[in-house]
Nucleic acid binder design. Structure first.
Lengths: 198, 198
DNA sequence: TCCGGCCTTGTCCATCGGTCCAATTTTCTC
DNA sequence: GAGAAAATTGGACCGATGGACAAGGCCGGA
């Protein structure tokens, strides 16, 4: 039995939600229900005046339920506010029941639901905040072949796998690793992976 | 009948995917298969050298299948590249089969799957302590003692050192590691370190 | 009280990983 | 061309690692 809670102003068009999720509970915006913490999904209308602090309270805590913000007039600005506030989804309040059920499945399984047009904007915003990391200087200490082997090790491969990947003998892999250990001052493959991977 | 395609280098750990999706097809990185356009989900390893142009080709078109990029060493930078390239998900290549199935459900229903670390960035840095609930946080799968051992391994310590550190027998360290490997679905200490981070 | 998970340790054994001895070939620089 | 560095492989040795099989004590929930 799935537990869905809708939080919306009194006169809202909650019939869509009732169609999509039979047995769901529709709450007046003023109500404070502790049971919300055990909900499968909380649908919060942005028509509720204090939806942002409500969202913050709902999304806090280790076992917080996924919250989807519903908007009668969706905007990218509001969508960013919702996602930044901890919402797991943002979609039109008048979406078809079938779509709402899709959204429920997604957020219930740990996914994030945002409109396709919003995705581009979100990615653009965060690419600016996450520049490409500089090349690790550690790797420059190694010869080209040693770098290949070292990267393969840092990817979790065994000597046998690396040998097959590079088309060389396992013995040769060991040789490259040995010199790589010495150059980087580590004692085994794990420490090497931590050096060039972290 | 779900159709899953995995594209990965020859010697990759594709057994995980086979566990998660019986009947799925594992493709060598060099193969070009038109049937990919009809796939339910395409899993693309970022260990494939030309994964970005491949992703672009896969994600293009009106009826493109959802593409999930798998990374042995997930980074926010690479995640952004993947999502910006049209990927619908980005997660660790060594994720447990159960988690991979969750990802499949999400993307198949139109959702977006991003790792807990990237989610934290999206949702704001100050609330990073309380990330998404469904984001199975690797370490939480382990018992307290197993976590201690796992963290020590991820710090580059040997079994003997860990035994001395924790005041237990080396045999016990092996026991904890064995169960940790099983719970996280990795095969050795290096992959465990890569999973939980250095 | 019984069951299950957790922590602990034991033995045995196959495999892996790292190091020592050594060698040949290629490639680049002086 | 001489020399140096890199890349390659061989063999052997031995410690580290991980799995298989077994078992005892502790503790909390059904």
């Amino acid at each position: 039995m799935s537990r869905h809670f809708f939080i919306a102003p009194a006169a809202s068009a909650s019939t869509r939600w009732a169609d999509a999720f039979p047995g769901a509970r529709v709450l007046a915006s003023a109500v404070q229900v502790p049971a919300l913490q055990q909900a499968d999904t909380v649908w919060l209308s942005s028509a509720v005046p204090d939806w942002q602090p409500r969202l913050a309270r709902l999304a806090a805590g280790p076992a917080a339920p996924p919250v989807v913000v519903l908007a009668l007039q969706p905007s990218q600005h509001e969508a960013l506010l919702a996602l930044d506030g901890g919402a797991r989804g943002y979609c039109h309040a008048l979406s078809a029941p079938a779509l709402l059920r899709e959204v429920a499945v997604v957020v219930h399984h740990g996914g994030l639901w945002i409109g396709p047009e919003l995705m581009g904007r979100v990615l653009g915003a965060f690419r600016r905040a996450a520049p490409a990391p500089a090349a690790a200087p550690d790797l420059d200490l190694l010869s080209p072949r040693e770098q290949e082997v070292a990267r393969a090790v840092a990817s979790g491969h065994s000597n046998k796998e690396i040998a097959r990947l590079l088309g060389i003998t396992e013995r040769t892999v060991k040789a490259h690793l040995g010199t790589a250990f010495e150059k980087l001052g580590v004692r085994d493959r794990l420490q090497l992976a931590l050096r060039i991977g972290g």
